[in-house]
Design a protein around this nucleic acid. Structure first.
Length: 591
RNA sequence: GGGGCCGUCGUUCAGCCAGGUUAGGACGCCAGAUUGUCAAUCUGGAAGUCGCGGGUUCAAAUCCCGUCGGCCCCGCCA
């Protein structure tokens, strides 16, 4: 029995036809003389009727059907009695009156039932992912993912991009994330690394004259997991020659707008908003701002400089800052709630959190009342209204931004300031080239060491590297970093200078990136590119709360696969063949 | 490496704070009934070493310590 239709397509138009459907028993309602079976496949549900008066032998076979049995049925498409139509089901105005049934497979009782509002815990779902994947919601997300990669390929192919694969077994590089290592059997003691990104290879491709490259690239980073972070993830990775920053921004904006329009009928703004790194940090305390709500950080430098509150004055006098949030209707917060807010601020790294309530009558109620001059506070925060709560953090800039940036997000959620129907893409531009790392006493690249500086900032590499800005760009959507890229350095002299500044010794640079430096000396075109996090894009587009829902077989927070139980120990023979001895306490697997 | 929440029939929860009945509900499962359901219904039934180990106690799901696992966060993620 071969299926003639799928389970989501039959309607009144097919009434009278004999059809064959195949799928899983989604639900079974046994009324004695008549049995209703919902048959499910990827496309939908269709109700099958087994009537003992019409076909007694078949009815008694159907009596054996249980949830998730796999079957094929043949029958006639019939109009349902008017009062039995189901408006909630796309196929709800018809049913199939069965006249043949082939039981293709049985299923034992399941650990959880296949339904969209899952009651099962996520670990149970991951352990039995094959069942979880039968849920329409999971299938919908994977379909969305497939649609997005298809649109991307179509769009980029249309623009003369070539899809090119880069190695999965590659070279470990210093800096950046921890590498996943793969031992080389034929080179005892040597290791491949799985790529954190195809960065170097795509630059080499440009030098190779391939001009426009893209790849739906799997990337690996051996770092701890988060809600939006998996150790293996997928990037829409591309690189172009003879382009400037604007070309790439345009190209990506068009792609993202196309994806949102085609898959969700959402019109994203054109052009996307842009913020400099500095503006973003000053206003939102982060370089990945969620712009679905306002609640900006207010600078209180002038107020702090002249106020009587020592903590504030000392902060600005020692190169720190004082910033605050104006929390709408916050004056109604109980003392307890404010205390909790202070605790949270401390957890985020603040030494404390000063607060001022502006009561409805305009009177101030504050933890620092005796130091406050109401007049100068009003001047400093003209937008603050009666009924608001002001909170302040005084510290070094990084702390102030981190604490207030996170409080902003927290309050945005708690006070339901976030408009979930809004989509706020924003480019964050002009990142500094370097940060100074106190622990290692050296500069570190904010983006990566191949990022080109602004042409007008090039002299700063010699005079004041921390002031130099790059031609990097991050695309942020609703507070999630969707991707980032840059125009790359194509001059070998400039690349060496950056390695020098990063204190990557010449020998080391030659050893790790020698092929790149050499390639740069062989006629490298100006080039640049970007990588977009596909999983996060699907997570946002699909409006699901975890990146794991967008990946068919994700890892748990301990980077394990609950279904296959990977990673696992291997036999001593395997290890010996690879010239590897482990110091782990765990015994090796027995063969 | 650190902080927080959680772990009880197949599943999901209650019980734990204040130790003491036969550890209870719902869904699922099994059997029977049932010709218009679509969360079908009705009747009956089976099902739990309370994550694991140790301790306190006359007595531990409950209190204490450790450990394992899941999730969220910090660090980390150029």
């Amino acid at each position: 029995m071969k299926r003639s239709h799928h389970c989501g397509e039959l309607g009144l138009a097919q009434v009278g036809q004999t059809v064959t459907l195949a799928g899983w028993v989604a639900s079974r309602r046994d009324h004695g003389g008549v049995i209703f079976i919902d048959i499910r496949d990827r496309y939908g549900l269709t109700q099958i009727v087994f009537d003992s008066e019409e076909n007694a032998p078949l009815h008694s076979i159907a009596d054996r059907l249980r949830n998730e049995y796999v079957m094929a049925i043949t029958g006639n498409v019939s109009v349902r009695p008017e009062e039995s139509k189901n408006p909630n089901l796309p196929t709800g105005s018809i049913e199939i009156r069965a006249n043949a049934l082939e039981l293709l497979n049985e299923a034992k009782p399941l650990p959880f039932s296949i339904e969209d509002d899952v009651h099962a815990s996520e670990s149970l779902r991951l352990e039995h992912r094959y069942l979880d994947l039968r849920r329409p919601r999971m299938q919908q997300l994977l379909h969305l993912r497939s649609q997005v990669t298809h649109l991307t390929r179509q769009y980029l192919h249309g623009l003369q991009f070539m899809e090119i694969e880069t190695p999965i077994l590659t070279k470990s590089t210093p800096e950046g994330a921890r590498d996943y290592l793969v031992p080389s059997r034929v080179n005892p003691g040597d290791f491949f690394a799985l790529p954190q990104s195809p960065q170097l290879f795509k630059q080499i491709l440009m030098i190779g004259g391939l001009d426009r490259y893209f790849q739906i690239a799997r990337c690996f980073r051996d770092e701890d997991l988060r809600l939006d972070r998996q150790p293996e993830f997928t990037q829409i990775d591309l690189e172009m020659s003879f382009v400037d920053r604007e070309d790439i921004i345009q190209l990506i904006e068009d792609l993202i707008r196309l994806i949102f329009k085609e898959t969700k009928q959402i019109d994203l703004p054109s052009p996307f908003l842009r913020l400099s790194f500095e503006e973003s940090l000053n206003r939102y305390g982060t370089d990945k701002p969620d712009l679905r709500f306002d609640l900006p950080l207010h600078d209180l430098y002038d107020f702090a400089k002249t106020c009587d509150f020592q903590v504030f004055r000392r902060a600005v006098e020692s190169n720190g800052m004082v910033k605050g949030l104006v929390i709408p209707k916050g004056a109604a917060f109980t003392r307890n709630r404010i205390d909790n807010l202070i605790e949270t601020a401390k957890e985020f790294g603040a030494k404390g959190l000063a607060w001022v309530k502006i009561n409805e009558d305009g009177q101030l109620d504050s933890s620092i009342a005796k130091f406050l001059n109401a007049e100068s506070l009003r001047n400093a925060l003209p937008t603050a209204k009666p009924g608001d709560l002001l909170v302040f953090v005084a510290d070094q800039a990084t702390i102030v931004h981190q604490v207030l940036g996170r409080l902003r997000l927290l309050l945005g959620e708690e006070l339901e300031l976030v408009d979930r129907t809004r989509w706020e893409p924003v480019w964050v531009l002009d990142f500094p080239m370097f940060e100074y790392d106190q622990t290692s006493q050296r500069y570190v690249a904010l983006h990566h060491p191949f990022t080109a500086p602004h042409p007008e900032d090039t002299p700063l590499l010699d005079s004041n590297p921390l002031q130099a800005k790059t031609l990097a760009y991050d695309l942020v959507l609703n507070g999630f970093e969707l991707g980032g890229g840059s125009i790359r350095i194509h001059s070998p002299r400039q690349q060496e200078k950056v390695f020098d500044l990063l204190k990557i010794a010449k020998v080391e640079a030659r050893e790790k990136f020698g092929f790149l430096l050499e390639a740069l000396e062989s006629g490298a075109p100006p080039h640049g590119g970007i990588a977009l996090g596909l999983d996060r894009l699907i997570m946002l587009l699909g409006q699901t709360e975890s990146i794991r829902d967008t990946i068919p077989f994700p890892k748990t927070q301990k980077a394990q696969c609950l279904m296959t139980h990977a990673p696992s120990s291997v036999s001593p023979e395997q290890l010996q063949e690879l010239s590897i001895r482990t110091t782990a306490k765990k015994p090796a697997a027995t063969p």
